[in-house]
Design a protein around this nucleic acid. Sequence first.
DNA 1: TTTAGGG
DNA 2: CCCTAAA
Length: 692
Amino acid sequence: MELHKRLDYGFIGYQVPHIPRATRSPRGRGNIRKKSDSNEMCAFDLLTTVAGKLLLEGESTSNSSGKDRSVVVKDTAETVKDDEDTPLKENPCNEGCQERGFFISEIVSEAPVVNHCLSKSTDTLSGPASVITSSDCSEKLGSAEQFINAECKTENRNCSTKVEHELSGCGDFSSCTLGAESKKQLKINLSNDATITTNKRAAICSSEFPDPWDRKSSMLVALDNTVKLSLSTDPDPFGSFPVIRNDVQLANKDDDEKSCRCTQPSTRNKTFRPAPRVVDWRMRKLQASKYWEVNPQSDDEGHINVDNETRHVYQKRENVYTSERSQRDFPFKKRKLYYCNSFSNSDGGSSDGICSSPTKDLNRDASGYSLASSGARAAAGTSIPKGASASFRSNDSHVKLKIKSFRVPELFVEIPENATIGSLKRTVMEAVTAILGGGLRIGVVFQGKKVRDDSKTLFQAGISHDDKLDALGFTLEPSPSRGSPPLGPEGCSRVLPCETPQPLTRCTPGSTIIHNGMQQETFNAFPDYSGINLSNFIESDHDSAPSPPDASLEKNAADSRALVPVAAMDAEALAVVPMRKPKRYETVQRRIRRPFSVFEVEALVQAVEKLGTGRWRDVKMRAFDNAKHRTYVDLKDKWKTLVHTARISPQQRRGEPVPQELLDRVLTAHAYWSQQQARQQMKHQSETRLLL
DNA sequence: TTTAGGG
DNA sequence: CCCTAAA
């Protein structure tokens, strides 16, 4: 048998792509920041939210031996246990954003907690990759937070769990571990009639788990008042499943700048295993079977207000794209809103689609993470103190959450030196997929540069010298949608990440734009050619893609914010291996590119013909009011390119061809309005002269 | 916030 | 599409 020199990497953490940023407001301004009554959020809410976000594959109906997973809220080296209804405010750490995190871990009752993830140092492995300063919290709340807050708000309103909160916003996750205790179905009645059903086996994460951060889910709630959360309480078949740590930053609106004053670590139950654990992921053969599903009932925010007719059409359309989209839905929205996308122009196009590739079937092997059910317990009211539900009053206190990274401590990979980059990626992918549930692919970054050649061996790439291993990083990227995974069996319930833009599926204009033909625009200055009125077309915002562009990832790869492998060493040592200090990962992902369709171009032309070239906001409101992803700047830019396109020869044009007729109109309108503009200037100048 | 332009 | 100076 041939002996291979093997390289062992311990993944101390990885940075997930930015959560999609919030969509732009209708008026095209920046990201929407949503605030929530987060202070009112109880630990369970947070856990549920986080769990939903993290959870991977899971199927309530599958015969999965659901792993027992618990989501634990950690505060400064402490695992907080009481998750039932402890108000956030009680947590002293609320003010110090950096030390709080959520973990999904196996429920290991007596295992002592070895929390090496909570070190305050950002320079050590133990420190959360996403540690940020409190000021950071207050200043840089990004998209993730927006989502979180938005969702939290929803949750809060519905949750009957009592949560006391103060303006101080210091929350206390006294008991955030979702214990696996109940195996029966638990129904959580929310104040507004929303129901959270906890199924003993349902995995949390997965595709079927309504993503709390998913706007779609929110919509679902809004429409149906029902949210079903499946929480698994099954025993953990794999004792060695690594802990996924999700660093969540909490920032109090009023107190973010205060420093964390958690000085008395709780000694309550620890639910973590000793973190150092080596898992041989090579043995895990994952089955691809599950995919993110889009719940047909959920509607995109942008569509909820459309009239029935339009909506109907839209849904129809959506169904048409279901398969394509579902495979691309990215689990993490990333949303700075939307947090994830096809960004990858820089990646040779391979990563363009975002989102998700077929997810491995974790039910079988990894069993999928299951949210353990202490939350269910709490939700069920079994341990909710009387009167708890009374305190869901909303006040101005907000807790801002920002998840900057998800960590997977102690994930070791052993791979032959002559293995290819591709195999390395696969190996890492398998491990990560098992944890995250798929929807991601791995990118390899070595010495600051992305290694794209999958066929190159590690040796060839220079990744064989131990001393250089610190220069190796991995990035989580949206999976290309190649492969067209079939819809999951339960495809009926699709869960779309809310702000997570769904991967842009180069939709044909006709399918993207719904023309209800209900209104006709009449232009004064120019003839109304088609009467196309896009003001009512359903925006295709749902086509947006969720994850951060490759460029973004790449750009930050050097910061080692991604998976940072370290030379194999004993777990204990690993915990203290310094990790390069990550710089702020503030890069806002570039919005997904969404070529204008002919319909849109026509609408734009029509609007400009009437309004002129200097009133982009009006153009936006007139013709693209419902297309939230088109800002007035976008329209202005498009016009600019249209003019350019119209001036060049047809041979030089690229992309979807624009009818010459439209281009002619563009030139005509442009000339007309340019002249008008010139006249205005002349007029203005002459007036000025007269005044002088 | 909008415009207007450069990148 | 992004970024920004100006308005």
